[in-house]
Design a protein around this nucleic acid. Structure first.
Lengths: 165, 165
DNA sequence: CTATAACTTGAAGTCGACTCCAAGTCAAGG
DNA sequence: CCTTGACTTGGAGTCGACTTCAAGTTATAG
């Protein structure tokens, strides 16, 4: 058994898809804890840290601002979230955000698919698009069109008379 | 039949969830076409414009930068995308982005759900998480846990001896 | 007539998230 | 020895996306 692998900032950057500068920046703003240093002062990271940074990267991809990620990371490791009741609400509410973000994204995918298929309709994409029962559909392959349920299309302004509206 | 409804910038802002300032800003950077003006110089918008702005809002929610939205809007109306072959590729590639964004988001949702359910595991959330066949799953209701297929969890660094790794 | 509100304009300011820079340290190779 | 490369630091600069500001116009109500 090795003593526990150590990674340089460069390796860490490669493994997490961040730049070295960004990792240092996160440390600077204390989003990440101060990394351990070797004798020469160089940072080094353990597998554990890499997982944390990956989670950070993942949250960032969901459009979460850094300040919201901050409390998230506290719970990232092996902590039981129930120990931080304050964060539990945070998590739950962010989960809702994400779910609605997914719905938004799905609408855009549907919009695009529709454009491809028919090239003429417009889909409504309002904030309240998914009220009621947000039926979950997620077709990866193109031939899957839009679900028929409760949809509102971009109507109006269809120069050549639209049937409904 | 009315002459066609006209909306002030304020009403438009309300209906699209943007601020008036933002709408003016988009006009300034020519993301939106110059709005028509009344005799007194005030902007007014038609239903059609509102749809366009809604689409803009929707794309923005998916994290698309304004400069990428720009060409998108060109095709938003009643245009057939096939007439703009350049945009078709754009659309297709953005669709792929979104699909992978959805996958990312879904991972975070799964991560959160797992935290809630077990409060002890860590899920991996790497960039290449969904390679191979991106099985599409999208559970809206909480009781839906994570799909069993090809998943990598946050492992490592589990202070109290982790089983695998 | 005045005051309030809803708009107009261009320009300047803010904020988050990097990204780059200059100056310095340290280790290894030629 | 000097150079190259990988790092360190603090601070400044950039960029996207707004947001605020100051000054002005016009319409309506009291």
């Amino acid at each position: 058994m090795k003593v526990e692998q150590r990674f340089t900032i460069k390796q860490t950057a490669e493994q997490t898809g961040m730049t070295e500068d960004t990792i240092r920046y996160y440390e600077k703003i204390a989003l990440l804890p101060r990394a351990e240093r070797k004798d020469n002062g160089h940072r080094f990271y353990r597998q554990e840290d890499i997982h944390t940074i990956r989670l950070l990267a993942c949250l960032k991809k969901t459009g979460m601002p850094l300040e919201e990620i901050r409390p998230f990371l506290a719970v990232s490791a092996d902590t039981d979230p129930a120990e931080y009741p304050e964060l539990v609400e945070h998590l739950r509410s962010h989960r809702e955000n994400i779910v609605s973000q997914i719905a938004s994204l799905q609408q855009v995918v549907d919009f695009i698919d529709m454009k491809f298929e028919e090239g003429r309709y417009r889909r409504d994409c309002s904030d309240e698009g998914m009220d009621g029962a947000p039926e979950n559909r997620l077709g990866e392959s193109k031939p899957k069109p839009v679900s028929p349920s409760e949809m509102r299309y971009f109507s109006g302004a269809t120069k050549a008379g639209s049937p409904l509206r």
